[in-house]
Lab assay of single mutants.
Amino acid sequence: MQRVNMIMAESPGLITICLLGYLLSAECTVFLDHENANKILNRPKRYNSGKLEEFVQGNLERECMEEKCSFEEAREVFENTERTTEFWKQYVDGDQCESNPCLNGGSCKDDINSYECWCPFGFEGKNCELDVTCNIKNGRCEQFCKNSADNKVVCSCTEGYRLAENQKSCEPAVPFPCGRVSVSQTSKLTRAETVFPDVDYVNSTEAETILDNITQSTQSFNDFTRVVGGEDAKPGQFPWQVVLNGKVDAFCGGSIVNEKWIVTAAHCVETGVKITVVAGEHNIEETEHTEQKRNVIRIIPHHNYNAAINKYNHDIALLELDEPLVLNSYVTPICIADKEYTNIFLKFGSGYVSGWGRVFHKGRSALVLQYLRVPLVDRATCLRSTKFTIYNNMFCAGFHEGGRDSCQGDSGGPHVTEVEGTSFLTGIISWGEECAMKGKYGIYTKVSRYVNWIKEKTKLT
């Protein structure tokens, strides 16, 4: 034993070699072989497995989906700052455009905790909710729209109204504003409101030439003092309507412009014939205590009207009353817009006519005020429907199939267009061939041609 100890002390290297040989010859039971080890760690190889990531292109799944990435790591994937920024906006807080917040056709661009709407022409605001041009839906104005110097929408209202708090709607500024039905039992019968379409306001006024200088022999019209197929109006439903009495009662109609003036057809009036105007009328054979009678003290036909040349060209006249009318729910003026808007309103496509005229061709006159909704007829169809001249200051309205029309005794009465609950004068009943005849239409004086003249002559002093 002493000898062994001496050998170990003198030859430590020998001992180490012996131990190493023993270990190498022993069977290893701690580690699995290569094949079995792979069965336990069965993990798919990654895209760049075996390579240094710093030297390969980034992978979106590896960089940002398996674990949260930084902007720089995302930049490695896209290799483009702009594309990385677009991805980053949604990656950080989701897609803010998912709810489609942009209105009126706006395009949404996502941002971090926010979004941006790219608005089409005519709109602005956070969600493109603000109209900035009158060309689109009248700028959301209830009545009139004008573009300011910086191309912003400025709404306005006709006389007797003021802008509401929203700067879009119009509200009454006087007790009985024009064009409004205020009798409670008839307010439910107000005709369907007309909503502004998209309009090209630059070209809204037709490029028409008034044929002022045409000389033409007097034409022989049949029954051209021209509501057939209409309905009984309720008291106060058309408070701007008046009836004219002269040699015979209810020979023509008219509309209240203001307390002192009536507008009617020029062919209705004769110099030297006494005319009485009755406002607030409903049943011409009954006294309903809503009527107001006034005498006409002055007749002003349009300066281009000449019955000797043509009885229905420039067929418009103004009547001055001896005493002002007292405005109330049964006696209310009709609204008159400017030339541009009167023309736009007419193009809405349908209007209402009213009167006490004959209820059928050569038949009896109506006792109760009649009204009828009539569609506008395109000019080409209008011209083809008659052998008589249709001037540019006239328009056609009615039904091709016949059966409904204005008729004798309705002449001078109103053709009105309702705009968001307020009625505007767009025409004056003038003439036609018979009444409600198939293929024939009622012919009306186009008020847009005469609004400046009306307003100039009827100013209240």
Rank of each mutant, 00 (worst) to 15 (best):
G58N: 14
A337C: 03
P172H: 05
G230I: 14
Q167V: 05
R364E: 14
D111M: 09
V195F: 07
E129P: 02
G105F: 03
M437V: 14
P301N: 08
C141R: 00
A317M: 03
T218S: 12
V153Q: 04
K168C: 04
P239R: 00
N80E: 09
P120E: 06
T215D: 07
V416L: 06
E159A: 10
C155T: 00
E35M: 09
E320L: 04
R298M: 03
G230T: 12
N245F: 05
V30H: 15
C268G: 01
D338I: 03
C108F: 00
G105K: 03
I15G: 04
E208H: 11
E320T: 01
F55I: 12
E270S: 06
N222V: 08
N127I: 05
D378R: 09
G349K: 08
V419K: 04
T276R: 10
E53C: 04
V248I: 12
A366V: 06
E401H: 14
R364C: 04
N306A: 07
R294T: 01
S204W: 10
K339E: 13
N306K: 11
Q408H: 14
F87G: 15
K362Y: 06
N222E: 10
Q143F: 03
P375I: 11
N127W: 05
G439P: 08
Y22P: 03
K247N: 11
Y441R: 03
C252K: 00
D131P: 15
S156K: 08
S99L: 05
I275T: 05
N166Y: 02
G179W: 01
V273E: 13
R83W: 05
K347H: 11
S423V: 10
S114D: 11
E434S: 13
L24W: 09
T209H: 12
R226D: 11
N393F: 04
V269R: 02
S187L: 11
N452Y: 08
N222G: 13
H303T: 08
N328H: 03
L327R: 06
Y444D: 00
G272E: 07
A279F: 01
H400W: 09
K109S: 06
E142H: 06
C157K: 00
V30E: 11
A192E: 11
K146F: 10
K109P: 01
N258A: 04
N80M: 05
Y450F: 04
R43S: 14
I40N: 15
G246R: 05
D223L: 11
Y115W: 05
G125E: 00
H361Q: 05
L60A: 15
C155S: 00
H361A: 06
I428H: 03
C134V: 02
E10T: 09
V296H: 00
A207D: 08
L20A: 04
N104E: 01
C119A: 01
Q241T: 13
T342A: 06
S70L: 07
I7N: 14
A250G: 13
Y341T: 08
E124L: 04
A366Q: 13
T445E: 03
T190I: 13
V153Y: 04
K457A: 09
I256M: 03
L52S: 15
N222K: 11
E165V: 13
C268I: 02
T386N: 11
W118P: 02
F71Q: 15
R75C: 04
N166T: 03
